[in-house]
Simulated scan of single mutants.
Amino acid sequence: MDTEAQHTERDSSSPPLTGPEEESRSARFPRRSWRGAVVLAVVCVTVVLLVSHFVTQPFLIPSGSMEPTLRVGDRVLVDKLAYRSGSVPRRGDVVVFDGTGSFVQEAPRENPVTGLLRGAAAAVGLAEPAETDFVKRVIGVGGDHVVCCDRGGRIEVNGRAVDEPYVYPGDAPSRVPFDIVVPEDTLWVMGDHRDNSRDSRDHLGEPGGGVVPVERVVGRVRWIAFPPGRWSALRPTHVFDGVRSPAGAVQAPGGGQGRRGDGHG
């Protein structure tokens, strides 16, 4: 009896087994945990890329052409659904667009692997956008007659002078004259930092005529998401509310439709 009791007590206080079976079992759990983490990471990255591709894309501002509205290093969120379901860009909208064929005649060639990695990083706002992507403000839409400048130095759209409070302090609306009727389904775009922006003015003499096809618009800039001190929504401008289209209609409140001399951005 005493011997059996001692044996039982000794067994219950013995250290756990550390043989091959236990080591194998413990080795399997970290591996499963590692695989689960990888699967979760892949799912998260996939979701982020899908949202970036179809809904909202972060966009890193690489230059000062849109100052003071957007600064170098700002991460903005581009609403890719803004112009779906029949909606089109309006005067005053700040848009991101693919400038291939208008601002850039052909996309630069790059290594497929590095291009894929750069594209993925740019899609989440961690790298500069492609050299063919631009951000500008819509000044004229299809059919608009845009002229610079009136006697007061202001841009005119369909005969109406426009005061532009978003233009960089000290810049003129344009330091060179232009006079253009914007072709249908295209946009006349300009940077807010007029003395530091290469925009539609600089490409009038090139193939594409300096205007951007509406189909090339990626989306509308809605928010500044980073850095934290810059977080804000881009409010619609009302400076074009009184501008009439060539057909006589007035643009709805909250938005933004040539010939020309040489330009400088």
Results as ranks from 00 to 15, higher is better:
Glu156Leu: 14
Val113Gly: 08
Val78Thr: 05
Leu17Phe: 09
Ser102Gln: 06
Glu215Trp: 05
Trp188Met: 02
Ala233Glu: 15
Pro165Cys: 05
Gly19Met: 08
Leu49Asn: 03
Ala120Thr: 14
Ala107Asp: 07
Trp188Arg: 02
Trp34Pro: 00
His53Asp: 04
Ala123Gly: 11
Val212Phe: 09
Asp79Cys: 06
Arg260Met: 02
Val147Trp: 07
Ser174Val: 06
Gly208Lys: 04
Arg71Gln: 14
Ala161Asp: 00
Val146Glu: 05
Gly143Tyr: 06
Asp133Tyr: 14
Gly205Asp: 11
Gly92His: 03
Pro16Gln: 02
Val39Ser: 00
Val218Asp: 05
Leu187Phe: 12
Thr237Ser: 12
Pro228Leu: 13
Val162Cys: 04
Phe29Lys: 14
Val214Pro: 01
Asp79Val: 01
Val138Asn: 10
Phe134Lys: 08
Gly152Cys: 07
Asp98Phe: 09
Val72Asp: 11
Pro30Ile: 14
Thr56Asn: 12
Gly125Asp: 11
Arg220Met: 05
Trp188Asp: 01
Gly229Leu: 04
Asp74Glu: 05
Gly261Trp: 06
Val214Leu: 08
Ile180Ser: 09
Pro253Trp: 04
Met1Asn: 04
Gly255Tyr: 06
Glu22Leu: 12
Val214Trp: 02
His53Asn: 00
Val221Ser: 01
Arg244Asp: 04
Gly153Met: 08
Pro16Tyr: 01
Pro183Asp: 07
Ala37Gln: 15
Val146Asp: 01
Arg91Gly: 06
Arg71Met: 13
Arg31Gly: 00
Val141Ala: 10
Pro227Cys: 06
Asn196Val: 05
Val146Gly: 00
Arg259Cys: 01
Ser63Glu: 13
Arg35His: 05
Thr237Ile: 06
Glu128Trp: 04
Gly263Tyr: 06
Leu204Glu: 11
Arg154Ser: 00
Thr46Ser: 07
Cys44Gln: 02
Val78Asp: 06
Arg198Val: 13
Arg235Lys: 05
Gly209Leu: 10
Arg260Pro: 07
Gly263Asn: 13
Asp241Cys: 10
Val94Leu: 03
Ala249His: 03
Arg28Ser: 12
Val51Thr: 04
Thr100Glu: 12
Pro236Trp: 09
His145Asn: 14
